[in-house]
């Protein structure tokens, strides 16, 4: 892909990041595509990639025995998947492309190396992840309240 750096800059998660930081991350990134029905992540898998969704919808689902998976949430362009960049853990949900999905995949191991090398970058990325996580948590709680009942 020619202008990976340009594509990185354009994603809202990295918007406003210092140009040298974006350039620094390019080597961790690659553009990926998922066909409808393909999984970005499965429950139990080691989460080793941070995805920045560019196009398409991803469903976040809980698989279960003897029934259809329960859809908890959908995410789309501008959203971030794999916010557990900061701690190694296994995915607790399935994430599946509902339609064709284009995303930037950032390798966690590479990201960690870069963030260790440049603590300022590490700080910025961490703060942004925290903000996204908080927003996800707040919305998930509201969704849990079932207010329309």
């Amino acid at each position: 892909m020619d202008d990976l750096e340009g594509v990185l800059k354009a994603h809202s998660f990295l918007a406003g990041l210092a140009p040298e930081h974006t350039a620094f991350l390019v080597s961790c990134a690659k553009n990926v595509r998922f066909r409808p029905g393909e999984f970005l992540m499965r429950e139990g898998d080691r989460e080793d990639t941070l995805y920045l969704i560019r196009q398409g919808t991803v469903t976040i689902e809980m698989p279960r025995l003897g029934g259809e998976p329960i859809c908890l949430e959908t995410i789309g362009p501008g959203d971030v998947l794999g916010v557990s960049l900061l701690t190694p853990r296994a995915a607790h949900l399935d994430c599946r492309a509902r339609e064709a999905v284009v995303a930037l995949a950032l390798d966690n191991a590479c990201m960690h190396r870069k963030m260790d090398e440049d603590p300022r970058l590490g700080y910025t990325i961490s703060m942004r992840l925290l903000e996204r996580t908080y927003e996800r948590l707040a919305r998930a709680r509201l969704q849990h309240l079932d207010v329309y009942r």
Partner: peptide, 11 residues
């Protein structure tokens, strides 16, 4: 929603 909904899910 179940799988036959193709719109967004969330608040």
């Amino acid at each position: 929603a179940s799988r036959d909904w193709f719109g967004p899910i969330g608040v």
